[in-house]
Design a protein around this nucleic acid. Structure first.
Length: 355
DNA sequence: AAATAAGCCAACCGCCAATCT
DNA sequence: CAGATTGGCGGTTGGCTTATT
């Protein structure tokens, strides 16, 4: 288990300075960290504990977490040790911002499987289920809230599929373009941890398919937009799309994923080509308005700003009712700044198309 | 500069399924 | 086969950091 040794002291100390493991909080934890309850510690991990765990796993491997915790001299539950290792100390854990490609993959896979975080995480090597879950809760749900949608509502999913994901594809494409001739898109987040990730075999909970998915994901740098589009469109039901990346959809989950979470309305036909979204709104979804936008339905939405643009048409299309009426979904009067982070990029979208 | 709010994320909890004894 | 243990998962929370007022 020499892979654990990849996580050196320096790195551990650096980790310890991260928010969750700051020296201050560690000290606080040591002070408050309940030595009382069965002599088990809780709260943030200290550098010393991390070292104990890493060194023990390096020497003996992982598994049997309860006995591991005892043998390593850690006053922690086995569960806590396992979590700390998997989510933080494992050498192939990838840190840093979620890249556009990862966002795209998360959105796509979540549309298939829902809150199956661990399953989704298997397709984002180096990312933990916890991280993806946090990403979803903090970023995605935030935008659903801004749109006054329930994050699980049909309409929000339509917005994701018809606005967000195509936008991400475009962004990825732009990254490829800007990096043409180079080693790859700089914005793809190729930090050191990222580079190291494929070499490390994810232990225990990471399936064999994950590294392969990674290779599909990142091994096509330089291939251009087409591959990014593959991400977005692969395995769409009824779609004559390029063959799905084998690793991205492992045999055991493909059928169930297709059976379960994907709906088969017109919006998925629209998913076949991302450019379609921008040039025609004819492939409107048929949202049911569940959990969405009622309070804001009377608002003027964003017509004044987006009138006559494909963006406006797009939102209009997304919000079209089943009965064919053209009522909006009640998108709030968001401002550009509301979406200034790297998810929606409404700002640059609008600058590009309107301003 | 201080107070407050919002964002973020590591860690915990409870539940369940698989495995072990 | 039954009970205990372990591992894994998704949901939730607490506290730190950052942004805003």
């Amino acid at each position: 288990m020499d892979m654990a040794m990849m996580c050196g002291l320096d790195e551990l100390e650096a980790l310890a300075m991260s928010p969750g493991g700051s020296a201050a909080s560690a000290a606080t934890a040591a002070a408050t960290g309940s030595e009382d309850e069965g002599d088990l510690r809780r709260g943030p991990w200290t550098v010393e504990e991390d070292l104990l765990l890493v060194n023990y796993i390096a020497a003996h491997g992982e598994g049997r977490w309860n006995s591991l915790a005892r043998s390593a001299g850690l006053k922690r539950t086995g569960k806590s040790c396992r979590l700390r290792w998997l989510n933080y100390l494992r050498p192939d854990v990838r840190r840093g911002n979620i890249t556009a490609e990862e966002q795209l993959l998360i959105l796509e896979l979540h549309s298939r499987w829902g809150n199956r975080w661990s399953k989704i995480a298997q397709h984002l090597p180096g990312r933990t289920d916890n991280e993806i879950k946090n990403y979803w809760r903090t970023r995605v749900q935030k935008h659903a809230k801004q749109l006054r949608c329930d994050v699980n509502s049909r309409q929000f999913r339509d917005v994701v599929r018809q606005v967000w994901m195509p936008r991400l594809v475009e962004r990825i494409q732009a990254e490829y373009s800007s990096a043409a001739g180079g080693a790859g898109p700089a914005a793809a987040g190729d930090d050191a941890a990222h580079q190291a990730a494929p070499a490390a075999v994810a232990p225990a909970t990471t399936t064999a398919s994950a590294p392969a998915a990674y290779h599909h994901h990142h091994g096509t740098y330089g291939g251009g937009y087409q591959h990014a589009a593959d991400y977005y469109s692969y395995s769409e039901p009824g779609q004559a799309a390029p063959a799905p990346p084998a690793a991205a959809m492992s045999p055991d989950d493909t059928s169930s994923a297709l059976r379960s979470s994907l709906t088969t309305d017109a919006s998925h036909g629209a998913a076949q080509q991302q450019h379609h979204y921008y040039h025609t709104a004819a492939s409107a979804a048929t949202p049911t308005n569940e959990g969405c936008g009622g309070a804001a339905a009377g608002s003027p939405a964003t017509d004044d700003v987006f009138a006559g643009t494909s963006w406006s048409e797009l939102l209009d299309a997304v919000g079209r009712e089943d009965d064919g009426s053209s009522s909006k979904i009640g998108l709030p009067e968001f401002e550009f700044g509301d979406f200034e982070d790297n998810l929606w990029s409404l700002e640059d979208l609008c600058l590009q198309q309107l301003c």
